[in-house]
């Protein structure tokens, strides 16, 4: 474990890019990793974890005991306070039967650093469990991150899994996000991705949901704002493989700038006559009526765009 000086240095750099001060001042972290060093580790009740430092990152295994119900989120941070060639994180999370927990995970890449970050995560949400995974990313405006993250989830019978990837601050960089879920009987999987691309950022998001259980549900929702010369692609695939399952893909991409390239590819496949999968995709500039309404209340065009974009990314 690191000294207080190391923690203070990391805190200073992460707060600078927008991480809430409270997280450090009130010791909210259950796990804080800088590159491949564990800085803070504090167990949450009912949550067992193994963390191994590797030459390029960490490997974690988290087991939430069956029936564990936590009011407060389990708070984790995987960040980099300095430039490093590559950071690799691998994780496995098992949420035991009947548990109800929320993980708030901060990705923090300090101002000005350059980094390749690779992440692989396996999630298993057992029967009747409820698991929310909020993945909040903070980058500096001059930070450049190549992020490649893959999540594979199994959602058990009558279980609920919600995964939110949100880029809250700074540049997106070059991003590839792949989220896959297999959903069992009456289970629910919800994927939400909210990002803004600036300058020459490249964003690729792929959501794949297999609704394999009777009456299972899947929602794949993306909100991508592409500015300047950003290239953004969203691929949403939902497979309705079981009786009375329901899936929906909701993709909205806003372009702002002449050199933006944006693509949305919804794929809906149904293999059962009682299954239903729907999709809606909208790509376009900022809604004119929204813009003009805010301008008619005295906001400048730039202020109005900012309000609308921040609302979409909330």
């Amino acid at each position: 474990m690191a000294t207080k000086d190391v923690l203070d240095t990391v805190a200073k750099k992460f707060i600078q890019i927008g991480l809430p001060k409270d997280l450090f001042e009130k010791n909210r972290f259950n796990l804080l990793v800088d590159r491949n060093r564990v800085i803070v580790r504090y167990p949450a009740p009912g949550v067992r974890s193994e963390v191994v430092e590797t030459p390029t990152g960490v490997k974690t295994k988290v087991y939430v005991e069956p029936g564990t119900k936590l009011e407060e989120p389990v708070t984790l941070c995987f960040g980099a306070a300095e430039t490093t060639e590559v950071q690799t994180t691998e994780g496995e999370i098992i949420v035991g039967e009947g548990a109800d927990v929320k993980f708030q995970v901060y990705g923090a890449m300090a101002e000005g650093i350059k980094l390749k970050h690779k992440n692989k995560l396996k999630v298993r949400v057992e029967k009747n469990a409820r698991f929310e995974f909020l993945d909040l990313h903070y980058n500096g405006e001059e930070t450049f991150v190549e992020l490649d993250t893959e999540t594979e989830a199994y959602v058990g019978e009558n279980a609920y899994f919600r995964s939110v990837f949100k880029q809250t601050r700074g540049r997106a960089g070059k991003v590839r996000i792949v989220l896959k879920a297999t959903v069992d009987k009456k289970g629910v999987a919800v994927f939400e991705t909210k990002m803004i691309g600036k300058k020459d950022d490249e964003i690729y998001v792929e959501d794949v949901i297999h609704l394999n259980g009777e009456e299972s549900r899947g929602i794949s929702k993306s909100r991508i704002i592409a500015v300047d010369e950003t290239k953004a692609t969203f691929v949403g695939e939902t497979y309705g493989n079981a009786p009375r399952c329901r899936g929906h893909i909701d993709c909205s991409e806003v372009i702002r700038g002449k050199d933006v390239t944006v693509k949305a590819v919804p794929v809906v496949v149904v293999n059962d006559e009682t299954a239903k999968v729907t999709h809606e995709a909208a790509i376009g500039s900022i809604d004119k009526k929204q813009l003009e309404t805010l301008m008619a209340r005295g906001l400048t065009e730039d202020e109005a765009v900012d309000v609308i974009v921040q609302g979409m990314l909330r």
Binding site: R223, D287, K289, Q290, E292, T293, L294, M295, A296, R297, G298, L299, T300, E301, V307, I308, Q310, G311, M312, L313, R314
Partner: peptide, 30 residues
């Protein structure tokens, strides 16, 4: 539009715009 609003003119649309992620409180404060 903004300059007209700053002079003190505004307009309420026949079908008002809807804003994703903006609360009524935030809208009124804006």
């Amino acid at each position: 539009i903004t300059d007209r609003a700053k002079l003190g003119i505004t307009l309420a649309w026949q079908e008002p715009a809807r804003f994703e992620g903006i609360t009524v409180e935030e809208y009124l404060k804006l």
